[in-house]
Simulated assay, not measured.
Amino acid sequence: MSAVDGLLWLSFGGPEQPADVRPFLENVTRGRGVPAARLDEVEEHYQSFGGVSPINELNRSAIAAVTDALVHRGIELPVYFGNRNWHPMVEDTVARMTADGVRRALVFPTSAYGGYSACRQYDEDIERARAAVGEGAPELVKLRHFFDHPLFVAAFADAVRTAAAGLAEYRLVFTAHSVPVAADTASGPPAEGGRRYSRQVAEAARLVAASVGVADFDVVWQSRSGPPAVPWLEPDILDHLDVLAGKGAPAVVVCPVGFVSDHLEVVWDLDTEAAQRAAAHGMGFARAAAPSGDPRFADLVVELVREHLDGAPARKLSDLPAAGCTVNGAPCAELCCEPRR
């Protein structure tokens, strides 16, 4: 294996003070045709939490855990933190890595899945950051998808058990970020038939449910942000809660299997809106924690790193493609997860 002298933790980013919120949202939605009224609505969500998203602090905590896990295993690898949409911006981080003399680094994107927003957009982030630095920018190798890694599944399974404790009967509902149907159809190489994102989410949900011992469950979607005329993956979590209430479900346990941390889309869409909708129906509601704070998540990242450092075998629980391992922003396959037009 080629030498590696750094690890870049690449994430979405989020505001850390009220004045950051609107410019952050404009960065996120630039070129996507999101109505201004929708931005106003989401801005109110952030401002209701003091204009601060939990995501950066959650990432810093996870990075500290990964750094400790690397040291514990005798791996000397500095970990750098860069974001797509807000500070620390990935372009600035890669510039600092270059100044520090990093020549070849692995990249851990904070998404377990394929698809444009979940995967290829991180390739674009890498390509853009290297182009901003220019000559001397380090080689950047993006780590693979980990939706079916045993540690990812185990952390979620235990979180479901904890959330369900004390509930005699409940419906298990998995949720992930919705995307346009066209984007999901285009996710993955055409030879695979597309839908890599939704298929991987469904597989992760199946694996977690099986670990918990639940045979019948639902996979739904949340956080839609596009124009109303564009079809997105459905059903939405709120609509689904209405359906469950109509069927007499006494309680629901929601597992945010599409997310790695309890950031604002989780605490607003689930802990706030979904919890309120369930309460309005008289249904019990519990939400499983996302895994970034679980010690096994740090171990997962170290295992992905070791696949490159010493050829450790890739641990997977399914036969679905674990794509990734791309270099310098090149997509993993021709026409794979092309951007929405």
Rank of each mutant, 00 (worst) to 15 (best):
M1Y: 09
D5A: 11
L7G: 02
P15Y: 12
P18E: 09
V21E: 06
P23A: 12
L25F: 07
T29K: 01
A37Q: 15
D40N: 12
D40H: 07
Q47Y: 02
S48W: 04
L58Y: 03
N59V: 02
R60S: 02
V66H: 09
A69N: 06
H72Y: 02
R73E: 15
G74S: 05
R84Y: 12
D92F: 06
T93W: 12
D100W: 09
G101Y: 13
L106M: 08
V107E: 07
P109A: 15
A112M: 13
G115T: 08
G115R: 06
G136E: 08
G136P: 01
A137F: 02
E139F: 02
V141Q: 06
V141L: 10
L143A: 10
R144C: 02
P150N: 14
A157N: 04
L167S: 10
L167G: 03
Y170N: 08
R171I: 02
R171K: 08
V173K: 00
S178T: 05
D184E: 04
G188E: 05
G194Y: 13
A209P: 10
A210E: 14
G213Y: 13
E234L: 12
E234A: 14
P235A: 02
L238P: 00
L244K: 01
G246I: 08
G246E: 14
G248N: 03
A251L: 09
V254M: 05
P256H: 08
V260N: 07
L264G: 00
L264C: 02
M283Y: 14
G284R: 09
A289C: 01
A290P: 03
P291S: 04
G293Y: 03
G293C: 13
R296Q: 06
A298H: 11
D299G: 06
L300Q: 00
L300S: 06
V302G: 01
V305N: 01
R306I: 13
H308K: 05
D310N: 14
A312W: 12
L317M: 13
L320R: 01
R341E: 07
